[in-house]
Design a protein around this nucleic acid. Sequence first.
DNA 1: GAATAAACGCAAATCATTTGCGTTTGGAGT
DNA 2: ACTCCAAACGCAAATGATTTGCGTTTATTC
Lengths: 140, 140
Amino acid sequence: MDEQILKKAGLKATPRRKEMLRILLNGGCPLTAEEVYHAFSEKQSCNLSTVYRALNTMAERRLLQKNIHRDGRVYYQLNLEHHSHQLVCERCHESVPIDLCPLEQLERDLRENTGYRITGHQFEISGVCPRCAEKEREKK
Amino acid sequence: MDEQILKKAGLKATPRRKEMLRILLNGGCPLTAEEVYHAFSEKQSCNLSTVYRALNTMAERRLLQKNIHRDGRVYYQLNLEHHSHQLVCERCHESVPIDLCPLEQLERDLRENTGYRITGHQFEISGVCPRCAEKEREKK
DNA sequence: GAATAAACGCAAATCATTTGCGTTTGGAGT
DNA sequence: ACTCCAAACGCAAATGATTTGCGTTTATTC
């Protein structure tokens, strides 16, 4: 439960934070601070800067993963054991989750070869989805 | 030669653009617009917004690759056939090039499974380099 | 229930990047 | 070599995501 998760991370279990976790959970995909902000209802609203601050502290405490996408915005997602990456359409921004992460073996090799302690990775593949490709073909 | 490369891409071969290509070439690693800007000499200076504009148009014409790193800034590099990715130290930002790109096979699979036309990818692995890890140990 | 550090709201600041616009320049055509 | 025009450029102002300073509120500990 959210309450316990937050406290275990040394954070106060405030209504806003619990709501943010809930939003990220049933969002099902990485969300920007702005998207989280808009997902609040009128009754329980939350200031945008509070959203940023809370998402960042939760990311620091490893409750969330923070990733920057090619659009230049930062996306947050719950830090579940099975993290996911995306293939994103350049045109409509539809995204397809990529199930297996090909970087795990690479990270092991890098640790051995460079002596770095690996703390994270991010990647994103961009493309054009079949629907947008179709639209383009029609235009010409 | 730079002159030909630019013209072949349908761009004017101006002194500034040739210099930018030169800077990126002997930089040897991805550079931000700001870094390119500072690499100009006093004699041949170049406005920062011109740097941004030129790098972006060269990227559009596929002369450069554009990648966003975890620090939130956009890095540009020459679009050589053998592109490279980096392992970046969170503390000192030292970076180690990663020779082989593990995403090529994945991209082929994705094209087949999703119907997307793949246009690019980016990834970056972050970690802490041995020197910074050592410094941290000393502090404690 | 009182005390206190952490959260919060609001407005202003920051920082990389983009844009509008008037001026300059490369290079195609003569 | 000379003219011409779209593309490049410089400068200043705008943008947009994110951060920060500060006074107020609230969750948690005792």
